[in-house]
Simulated assay, not measured.
Amino acid sequence: MTSTDLHFVDAHHHLWDLGHCNYPWLMAKGKMRFFGDPGPIQKNYLIDDFLAESPDYRPAKSVHIQVGVAATDEVKETAWLQSQQPYPHAIVAATDLRAKKLQTALEAHGQSDRLRGFRQILGRHELEDKKHGSDALLKDTDFLQGLSLLAAQGLSFDLQMVPPQMDQVVALFKQVPTLPVVLCHAGSPWDQSQAGLRSWREGLEKFAALPNTYCKLSGLGMFNPHWNEAALRPIILQVLDTFGPTRVMFGSNFPVDKLYNNYGCLWQTYDRVTANFSTTERQQMFCTTAENFYRI
């Protein structure tokens, strides 16, 4: 299969205009993040930049995931994304699901008809999570109520977490069985030792046993900055074995993963690793799963 034959949805990417919204982490020069030095991407990243990443690999559709905008600019970010063309086709926005005026916030975001769901990060990396206390959401009844409200309004949730949180995550999402949930970045396999990958795999199996759960292969460069096809192959195949092609989607996590490799190489890797799957299975994992989940 040649690169021009690959028809795909990029189910996880970012855009930002530093002159339009306030992105604190993109404006904090010289500050390291859990994924490394953000310096090379601390500048505008617009549609034209996204489309220029590869002459051979261009998504048929795309999904934009919230990217750490200041709380005061969350609705503004959604409206800005709504104004962009021709991408993204779906918007996963940011809001605090614990907020007392959550319904008002959902209505404001909902003025953008490409809104499909929300992400409120539960875990990024152990060291950074200790500073932010994001895992406190797992035991917060207001957060649970917020998730229930998303389900009631036909919205979805993008879940970013780390493997040690999995038991609590499973207990939480058992309580909202009608909410469509997709696990970002393959569940963040930070520990790639034999024991770490075993724990990650066992966690995936627990999560996959829940109804309405999906998994997104994205952001893998954050966990192995020096990745190549051989390194990603077992991660990709494990996710596909656990969830099956009808519950797996692919994303680039660009421009964050641009820190580690180029767009074409990433999609070529996804293409090669899945070459032995049937045409129907590949259509599902590269397009249909994301199209159905995000209703695009």
Rank of each mutant, 00 (worst) to 15 (best):
F8W: 02
P86S: 05
R58P: 01
E202C: 06
H20M: 09
V69L: 10
F173L: 15
P163G: 04
G30W: 08
G36E: 01
G30I: 05
I121G: 06
P234D: 03
Q103H: 13
A93S: 15
D17K: 11
T288Y: 11
V67E: 01
E202L: 11
F293M: 04
H14F: 02
D140C: 11
Q192D: 08
Q284E: 15
V75Q: 08
Y87V: 08
A209R: 06
G187Q: 04
G117P: 11
N224H: 01
L149G: 07
F35R: 00
G117C: 08
I235R: 02
P211M: 11
L97F: 12
K139V: 14
K43M: 12
C287L: 05
R198A: 14
H109T: 07
P189D: 04
A94Y: 12
F250Q: 12
H109F: 09
Y45P: 08
D37R: 09
Q175P: 09
L18M: 06
F207I: 12
T242S: 09
S193P: 11
I121S: 11
Y23Q: 11
Q103I: 10
A94M: 12
F8V: 06
D191S: 06
G264R: 00
G244K: 03
M27Y: 07
K216M: 14
A171Q: 13
R272I: 12
E205Q: 14
P189M: 09
H64W: 15
D129H: 02
G30L: 09
L217P: 05
N44T: 03
G187F: 07
C184Y: 04
A231S: 08
Y260K: 06
E281L: 14
G264C: 00
Q175I: 10
D167Y: 05
Q268S: 05
K206C: 07
E126H: 09
R114E: 04
F250S: 13
V9F: 03
K31N: 03
Y263K: 05
A290P: 10
P59E: 00
M1E: 08
V248D: 04
F35P: 00
H7Y: 01
Y45G: 10
R247C: 07
H13I: 03
Q82C: 09
K61S: 02
H226V: 00
L240M: 15
F254I: 10
D140W: 04
V63H: 03
Q160I: 02
A70M: 11
K43N: 14
L147E: 12
F157E: 11
A108T: 07
Q268Y: 01
F277L: 15
